[in-house]
């Protein structure tokens, strides 16, 4: 079992830096049509299987339905007045859910090569960090002590 350093740097092509492997070539699990059999179990299998996509129209309709429901929920939460300080965090979490839903299933990141996820995630990580810092800088500029 190679240690971390070897995994990062080894020459024979199996290091992390040699990029993740593509979709697996394992045979497809038995599966008829987009949503068949006990459909919820089937949905779960489609949604969580990281390899060859088994998603069909039914699955995409389901994801679209969930996204629409979340949007409705957001708009409804907007009318609820008793949320107080929880309003913004809840909305951010809900929109993050929508964000991830579209990324993972509509943009196929869940079924696709990890390299694409790396590309997007690197920009998201850098972006979210620096823009959060900018918000802090703007909010707390000129204050003698931050903490």
């Amino acid at each position: 079992m190679p240690n971390l350093w070897q995994k990062l740097t080894q020459h024979d092509g199996n290091g992390w830096w040699n990029l993740p492997h593509g979709p697996s070539n394992e045979p497809n699990p038995p599966h008829e049509g987009p949503v068949g059999g006990p459909w919820l179990a089937n949905l779960w299998r489609v949604a969580t299987y990281g390899g060859v996509s088994h998603a069909g129209p039914g699955f995409y309709w389901f994801v679209g339905f969930i996204l629409a429901v979340i949007t409705l929920l957001e708009v409804w939460l907007f009318t609820v007045e008793s949320l107080g300080i929880w309003f913004i965090p809840i909305l951010l979490i809900l929109s993050l859910g929508k964000f991830v839903g579209v990324m993972a299933y509509f943009m196929h990141l869940r079924f696709d090569h990890l390299l694409y996820t790396y590309f997007f995630a690197s920009a998201m990580i850098v972006g979210v960090l620096i823009f959060t810092i900018i918000l802090f800088l703007s909010e707390y500029a000129n204050q003698p002590v931050l903490f």
Binding site: V126, L129, I130, I133, F136, L137, Y140, A141, N142, Q143, P144, V145, L146, F147
Partner: peptide, 21 residues
């Protein structure tokens, strides 16, 4: 390349971002 993203305010030390920043 990664750390280079988190140093930009050293161009702005005299702007008055505050001691913490």
């Amino acid at each position: 390349a990664f750390m280079g993203w988190f140093v930009w305010a050293h161009h702005m030390f005299t702007v008055g971002l505050g001691p913490a920043a």
